[in-house]
Amino acid sequence: MTAALAASLSSQGHSFLSPTGVEIVFVLVGLAVLGAAVLTVSTSQLVHAALWLVVALGGLAIEYLLLTAEFIAWVQVLIYLGSVVVLVLFGLMLTRAPIGRSPDADSGNRWVALGLAVVAAGTLVTLVVDAFRCTWMDLPASGSTSVNGSTQANGEVLFRYWVLPFEALSVLLLAALVGAIVLSRRHREEG
């Protein structure tokens, strides 16, 4: 009995005491992402919040790489770090955000929000535990290409099965472009 148990344990591979490199990187980067996210939400210097957001999003790109989603990781770096954060910084400058501390940055219902946040975190985490308690995923062997998120694999799936949503997205981007121009244009009579 104990021999069979030990055999099954040893065939299962490693335990918590002998983590693989992927798990170590996951834990370190995950803690960095969580810390940066908390700082983004809680700092009273608005420009610092945007810079902490860069750290959080970059850490998420590393997590995507750990999940072998290579294409998504680079899209994350290009779109989020490259354009969204820059746009947000532009927005902060255009609305003349105070450089330095701004004590009125928080709204008044801080404690209600914190209580709600704790309840929501507990619900989500218990839901996840309940749903995926017994699920394991095996990393593919180094030679196999079972799930790789490389650009080639993503492109094949994208243009074989997802062509219509892709084209719809291009129309959406055009609409967003035109809408942003219309919204931010000054009217002629105002100046």
């Binding site: 995950g30 969580l34 009125d104 975190a121 699920t135 394991w136």
Partner: peptide, 30 residues
């Protein structure tokens, strides 16, 4: 590798973002 860990991270990150939407006042930080 247990995928639940990634989902934990996603759930906690979502909660942090939701808290920020409730707490902060500047529209761009939202």
């Amino acid at each position: 590798m247990n995928p639940v860990n990634y989902l934990y991270l996603a759930a906690l990150l979502f909660t942090i973002g939701a808290t920020g939407v409730l707490v902060r006042r500047n529209a761009i930080v939202l």
